[in-house]
Design a protein around this nucleic acid. Sequence first.
DNA 1: CATGAATGAGGGTTCATTCAT
DNA 2: GATGAATGAACCCTCATTCAT
Lengths: 216, 216, 216, 216
Amino acid sequence: MARKKEPERTPVNQKRIVEVAKELFMEKGIESTKMDEVAKQAGMSKSTLYVYFKSKEEIVDYISLEAMKYLLELLKTSISRNEGEKEVTFHDQYMAICHAMVTYKKEYPMNFQAIVEEIRVDDESLKEKPILREIFETGEEINQFIIGVLLQGQSQTDSNQSSMEGFIAKIFAQWGSIYGLIVLADNKESYIQKCMHLTKEEFLEQGFEQLYRTMK
Amino acid sequence: MARKKEPERTPVNQKRIVEVAKELFMEKGIESTKMDEVAKQAGMSKSTLYVYFKSKEEIVDYISLEAMKYLLELLKTSISRNEGEKEVTFHDQYMAICHAMVTYKKEYPMNFQAIVEEIRVDDESLKEKPILREIFETGEEINQFIIGVLLQGQSQTDSNQSSMEGFIAKIFAQWGSIYGLIVLADNKESYIQKCMHLTKEEFLEQGFEQLYRTMK
Amino acid sequence: MARKKEPERTPVNQKRIVEVAKELFMEKGIESTKMDEVAKQAGMSKSTLYVYFKSKEEIVDYISLEAMKYLLELLKTSISRNEGEKEVTFHDQYMAICHAMVTYKKEYPMNFQAIVEEIRVDDESLKEKPILREIFETGEEINQFIIGVLLQGQSQTDSNQSSMEGFIAKIFAQWGSIYGLIVLADNKESYIQKCMHLTKEEFLEQGFEQLYRTMK
Amino acid sequence: MARKKEPERTPVNQKRIVEVAKELFMEKGIESTKMDEVAKQAGMSKSTLYVYFKSKEEIVDYISLEAMKYLLELLKTSISRNEGEKEVTFHDQYMAICHAMVTYKKEYPMNFQAIVEEIRVDDESLKEKPILREIFETGEEINQFIIGVLLQGQSQTDSNQSSMEGFIAKIFAQWGSIYGLIVLADNKESYIQKCMHLTKEEFLEQGFEQLYRTMK
DNA sequence: CATGAATGAGGGTTCATTCAT
DNA sequence: GATGAATGAACCCTCATTCAT
């Protein structure tokens, strides 16, 4: 009755396309990656790409969603990993989030910017691309998760949080700052090395700590 | 007696092209702006564009340099404007820098990202595009200026700065954070409005203050 | 059993493009032949051209190699054709070469000049266009073949050939002269007809005989 | 009464344009020489070019005529220079012509090919470009001159010249051969050096001698 | 499903030439 | 005469996408 291959919802080829596309997007950016290359690298004909994806944009969207899901999962894992331990401090959680972001950028550099971008969803495009809703919703979930974690941590540390909204703004600002810090560290790695004698990781560690202090 | 057209160094059309190109780059990005559109908007034929600029890239480079110079000037002006006043605090100067950045993004959004990007200058391209050197050097000048200002301010506040390099790293981290904050505020303005009941400006003000605290 | 499409190594369209391009190059020269025309004449869209050849230059190179190979084959065939006969004189072989050249120009007029041109092959372009090496090597092979044939013939006729180098120079000079003769005959055919009452072929015959005499 | 500057029929600028154009045509070929470069090199505005010449083609034609006249003059001079001497052999004159050709190519490389090309003069183009007639006529004059010289020489050497036409054909063939020889020597100079250990001049000398022998 | 084959719709760039001043 | 300014008409090339098989 049931089909045998139930778990393989996405055919092997679809997976391969996404895999290859992601790889290429990482290396040379989305714009510079041509469908020709994706096809060649994936070892299939260009037409086959279009069997699985209606357009290049759809591949991009697909990967965007994947990225979002990955980040959400990453955050959840990072946080929960701490849970077994005796004393999970706010500091630990804050750092866990930061490092999750770093990992995320390593895995999805071409989607890193998305975390500070508004996902525009006019009804028009939503009709034709329901995937956008998913992306948007996952983004929101990430937002809520972060806020939740930090809110909880905050109450441990600074009980004098009068306004909820003010606190969210604070978190949001953190979010932007972390984003900027990571972008900078990545782009100017060699400059940092040369002028400050720090590895990218060391620089980030200091930066995160600096930012952490503003949370308190 | 006096020569008539002495001051008009850059021909009217060149100015117009840059003006129009900048406008379009702001609106739709550099890649999406076609030379056709620039020509049309500027009210001249496409060929005429190429009388004044050898290529699209040259227009982009020209505007990049303009942007860099603009930012440097902006920073200098912002800082010196305070000088007349009785007491120019470190806080004032820090905020001046932040606001200069905001203004800069308003004027050159398509070049905002450049401030956290490495300007790659292989000898090859430098030979053919001396403008790249100018861009690079202006970028360095900006770096030095910022460091200079904050260093001076720092010594007022926190005299216990042992290592120079460590301090520069701190400033650099600030730089990245401010960048991220502004990007976020711009992109998510409506979200901020909706969820936090803050204008973009208010949000930024709070964010800058938050960051400022880490400097001390 | 037997594979169906094995022999069709070059796709039909590639062949067609080369065919058409060659035709047009012959008629109006390479420079004056536009890709638009090639496409139109070949009955396909301009983009399709670029499926089979990366650039116009590549078409030109392809035809150049084809031409070289054609000439080499032609020379070999012309010479060997005589072999069955009782007595193959040096004269026969000399004339065979001359006529091969005439045929070659008829088939590849736009490549005729190449036989007196140096094939410049800097390492740069050789890396990116390995076809250049093939062209060059076929050219060398032609040289060697000619020298071989005439050297052999020479020893029959004039056994008093002291220096090898001097002999090669002699052959080389012949080569240039034959080239010039053919070019002239082709360009001034009507003039020759009018002033000398000779067909192009008759004129060439006489010319070749005249040159032949200098070989002895 | 008479205008003062009678001899300066061609204004200074016209001369300069031709001079510069010729220089550039020599260096990089006619096609590759842009009007922009001519103007710049000539130190005048592009528009000024068009004051003196209706089109690029007109410059080319002008130089073509100049070249033809130069060659005619050169031939005449070369031949007459010998006249004072006691015994001007046919050999001397033949060589004089050959060397005149070499000199001609040195001075007008871009017009060298013209000597074996038919000057097409349909009535159409002749109406609009009377210069073509001049070019054509000078070409004819060159032809006649050569024929005259060689005819005269011939009668000294080989009195058994039955048919005039046959003789002209012979001369014509020489003409083509000399042309080819010079082209080859120029293009393959380094090859000649490498393989035959001859300078271009030595190679040509031998080649000319070789050809000369066929005249007898 | 998979693909070979083909292409429409541009995109940036070039250059001889014109014309008002 | 001389020129500054402008351009029309091409030209080569690119690439996401389609469709019959």
